[in-house]
């Protein structure tokens, strides 16, 4: 079949402006997008730059967008993308600095962020003889997380990265999970502190886009939530988040439901005058519309006593 590839181009040695090149390629029915690209580079245009390594779905190196859908060039069958028209658009992933053509900056996008979570086990140097005895259930969970092939699709789907490129992102935070929940790691509390740093777990909006985009079913969003839950249990170290979560929990615990006015005040910190002043315009606007909830005037729900009991039991459980 004859396919026209319309490929994103950018040459850092010329004007660096993005453009597109069209290539008409004869391919067989079974061909993948990578087959097409290799053929183009080999026979038609040797200036075209794209990455690929394993060429069969193991490694994530050839991640790109095919007809705007992020996937792997090596497993994307051309026939699956040409049902409506024999044209295929190829672009680099979104929201990532492009170096040349389909080659984008993996370092800035993902590798440097992974390095930022100190992605190595701190082993017990004193252990000598034999392996650590550990249940397979714990190991199976880590194996699942480590089936990640660093393809970047979770980061590409992330809702936060488009507004803040410095957010660590789901790939790096999922890597952090692998150490937070590895019983062999001796870094202990330090692990959570690393994950809780600015641009870390508390900047995640837990929108589940990452989980939806992960081709391996690793569920990065749930992994981030697990780290947060663990931090909640042992004590959140990010002060503002700690204030917010403590206030939230206290109001649900005491009355069964959320006291939003109190939450707003306590999140800023009751002694943080500057922070509280900042709330004033919003509060004034809300008040003018008759919708600002009045803090601490918060009646208990029926059943609140029972909820408090559950709460206390849950808190004991998680310690």
């Amino acid at each position: 079949m004859q396919i026209t590839f319309k490929v994103y181009r950018k040459d850092p040695e010329k004007d660096g402006k993005p453009g597109r090149s069209n290539y008409s390629v004869e391919l067989d029915e079974e061909a993948t997008v990578l087959d097409g690209l290799l053929k183009i580079r080999d026979e038609m245009d040797d200036t075209l730059a794209f990455r690929a390594s394993c060429a069969r779905g193991y490694c994530g190196e050839c991640t790109m967008r095919v007809n705007y859908k992020a996937c792997f060039a090596c497993t994307a069958k051309v026939s699956a993308f040409t049902k409506k028209s024999p044209e295929i658009l190829l672009d680099p992933l979104r929201n990532i600095p492009v170096i040349k053509d389909l080659v984008f900056d993996w370092d800035a996008f993902m590798w440097n962020k992974i390095t930022a979570v100190k992605p190595w086990l701190e082993p017990d140097e004193s252990s000598t003889n034999g392996e650590n005895l550990l249940p397979d259930s714990t190991m199976a969970d880590l194996r699942k997380v480590m089936s990640c092939y660093y393809c970047g699709l979770c980061d590409e789907g992330c809702t936060v990265l488009p507004v803040d490129f410095d957010f660590l992102g789901p790939a790096a935070l999922t890597k952090a999970y692998r150490f937070v929940f590895d019983p062999r790691d001796k870094a202990g509390r330090e692990r959570l502190k690393i994950a809780e740093k600015p641009k870390g777990i508390w900047d995640c909006v837990h929108c589940f886009e990452a989980s939806e985009h992960c081709p391996r079913g690793i569920a990065p969003t749930e992994r981030i939530i697990s780290i947060r839950d663990k931090a909640f249990k042992v004590g959140i170290t990010n002060e503002k988040v700690a204030r917010h979560h403590t206030s939230f929990a206290a109001s649900v615990k005491e009355s069964g439901w959320l006291d939003e006015g109190r939450l707003a005040l306590e999140s800023e910190g009751l002694t943080n005058i500057k922070g509280l002043m900042k709330l004033l315009p919003t509060a004034a606007r809300a008040m003018a519309r008759g919708k600002a909830p009045i803090p601490y005037l918060h009646p208990k729900r029926p059943g609140a006593e029972q909820i408090k009991k559950i709460f206390e039991k849950g808190e004991r459980e998680k310690k």
């Binding site: 249990k233 059943g303 609140a304």
Partner: peptide, 23 residues
């Protein structure tokens, strides 16, 4: 439903919010 609690809104950890929601 008047005698039930906040869902936890993704703020409370699952060990607390799951029992509350089960209720």
């Amino acid at each position: 439903m008047k005698d039930v609690a906040c869902t936890g809104a993704g703020v409370l950890p699952q060990d607390i919010s799951d029992p509350i929601n089960a209720r």
